[in-house]
Simulated assay, not measured.
Amino acid sequence: MRVFVFILIAYLLGSIPSGLWIGKIFYHVNLREHGSGNTGTTNTFRILGAKAGITTFVIDALKGTIATCLPALFGVSVNPLLFGFFAIIGHTFPIFAGFKGGKAVATSAGVLLGYSPIFLIFLLIIFGIVLYLYSMISLASVAAASVGIIGVLVFPACHFILTSYDPLFMIITLAIATLIIVRHRENLSRIRQKKENIVPFGLNLSHQKPVK
């Protein structure tokens, strides 16, 4: 019963639609009606600016970190990834926003921060490299998720970053990474059409020309 209560708390934490609420309360803007219509960090940056975008990213990441730390904070003998996973589910399908949430990148990063910060740093490096080369947050997110899948399958065998196989960590990472990739399917379609949104820096090696 106690575990169920903390799973519910983790889900509700994840369900806080920070970008949507920040837009409505402080900017009187409904993010669902602008840009991609997504309420996550990227669209918040694009529509509301850097201050709102950074705030949204921090809150969304903290949702994952706090949920992952619940067992340590309250002495619950359960793998913390279980709670982190439900925070991600909450972020993706938030009860406070009609079950239409973000793409889980920031909250997933927060979960990794609470569970395996070195692995997170490695994936952030991959994210940063791809972002600089191709100027697309979407592609960088998909690349980091894909490398995450490879990492949990291969790294323990090589004793690189992850020193041993953790079945739950592997299953949840595979599930989260797959979710991130699936949630970016529209972005991947636009990338193939050379119409994906880009950030105002980097090399844009794939020569995207987003529709204004």
Rank of each mutant, 00 (worst) to 15 (best):
G128D: 02
I126A: 03
E186L: 06
G84E: 09
I22H: 09
G64K: 07
T163V: 15
L62C: 06
M136R: 14
V5T: 15
S141W: 00
G84T: 13
H207P: 02
P117Y: 07
G148P: 12
F86V: 02
I126M: 04
K24F: 03
Y115T: 13
E186Y: 08
P17W: 08
L73Q: 01
I16C: 04
L168D: 09
I22D: 08
G64E: 03
V211I: 15
N187S: 13
V3R: 14
G151Q: 04
A50C: 10
E33D: 10
I22Y: 12
S108P: 08
G53S: 09
L81V: 12
K194A: 09
A157D: 10
Y132K: 10
P156V: 01
L120P: 00
L13W: 02
F155I: 03
K24W: 08
Y165G: 04
G148W: 09
I129D: 05
P210E: 07
I129Q: 07
H28Y: 12
F85T: 00
L20D: 02
H159M: 01
F119I: 03
A106W: 04
T55K: 01
K51L: 13
A106K: 03
A97R: 09
I121E: 03
A97Y: 11
P167F: 07
G40W: 06
F83N: 09
I25D: 04
L120A: 01
L124N: 10
G19V: 08
L70G: 10
P71C: 03
G90S: 06
T178A: 11
T41M: 14
L179C: 13
G49K: 02
P210D: 05
R183V: 04
T56P: 03
L120R: 00
I161D: 14
F74H: 12
V154Y: 06
Y132H: 14
Q208K: 06
S108A: 15
F96I: 02
A52S: 11
V154R: 03
F160V: 15
V199A: 02
V78F: 08
G102R: 14
L179M: 14
T68V: 09
Y11M: 11
L12A: 06
D60C: 11
R183C: 01
I161N: 09
A50T: 13
A140S: 14
L174T: 07
P210F: 01
A97K: 11
W21T: 15
V154H: 05
A145D: 00
I59M: 06
H91G: 00
P94D: 10
Y11H: 08
S116M: 14
V199N: 01
G148I: 08
A67W: 02
M1P: 11
I176M: 06
Q193S: 12
G23S: 12
P80I: 05
H184F: 05
R190Y: 04
G75N: 14
N79V: 11
L112Q: 02
P17R: 08
I22S: 05
A157G: 13
A97F: 07
G64C: 09
F57G: 09
S18N: 03
T41H: 04
S108N: 06
